[in-house]
Computed example of a mutant assay.
Amino acid sequence: MENIKIRTFDQGDRDWLIRQHQEHYALEEGFDDSFGVLVTQIIDEFLHDHDPACERGWIAQKGNQRLGSIFCVKLTAQRAKLRLFLLVPEARGHGLGQRMLQTCMRFARDQGYEGMQLWTHESHRAAGALYARSGWELTDSRPAVSFGKANVEQTWEILL
């Protein structure tokens, strides 16, 4: 995929990003509406309270078409959290996910974070493989019922 830019997330991306998460995770994972509620809360909190000096969101875009998102938010003074990493199906398998992950990790490193963590589900195997290839380690895995179905929740971490 050529001519893709990764730009800063802004208020105009809010509804698209919420809708993409709701539709994608309902279709591919069977998540119920509670997932959309969580995503809306995360995005609205980011829009209202984030510190642009050490937190940022990005949108991958080709022309007028948005293709994905990734966010870096402060967890502690030394640790950042990766959130809202999503690629639309047609953008997968072309290296864009790696590029977005590198953008997010570079930003975290440049802001002085010593490490990062993220929370995901075991069913996101392609994402897990990307994290592992990029030096992330799976530090916790546990069964849970979330978003209306049985899942295996995972925590991944990396030192920067």
Rank of each mutant, 00 (worst) to 15 (best):
I18V: 12
Q22D: 08
F35G: 04
A26H: 10
A26I: 03
F9G: 02
I18K: 09
G36F: 05
L17V: 04
G12F: 05
E23Y: 08
A26G: 08
I42E: 14
V39S: 00
Q20E: 14
S34Y: 08
D33I: 02
Q20T: 10
I18F: 02
I43E: 05
Q11F: 07
H24S: 11
L17E: 08
F35T: 05
Y25A: 04
R14D: 02
D33N: 09
S34V: 10
I43G: 01
Q11E: 13
D33K: 07
V37C: 08
Q20V: 10
V39L: 04
L17A: 12
E28S: 14
V39F: 01
Q41L: 05
Q22P: 00
E23T: 10
Q22I: 12
Q22N: 04
V37S: 05
Q41W: 06
L38R: 09
V37M: 12
D44E: 14
H24Y: 15
E28D: 13
R14I: 00
A26M: 10
F9L: 06
E23V: 10
D10H: 14
E28H: 14
D32T: 02
E23C: 10
S34E: 15
F35Y: 15
L38W: 07
D33F: 01
E23G: 11
R14W: 06
R14N: 08
G30Y: 11
E28Y: 13
E28L: 14
W16Y: 12
L38P: 02
D33V: 05
H21Y: 07
L17Q: 11
D10N: 15
F35V: 04
I18W: 05
I18L: 03
A26Y: 09
D33Y: 02
Q22M: 09
F31G: 00
R14L: 10
D32M: 03
Y25L: 14
L27E: 15
D10L: 02
D15C: 03
I43W: 00
L17D: 01
V39Q: 00
I42W: 07
R19C: 08
S34F: 09
V39G: 00
G30K: 10
E29K: 11
G36R: 01
G12H: 11
Q20K: 13
R19T: 08
F9C: 04
V37R: 11
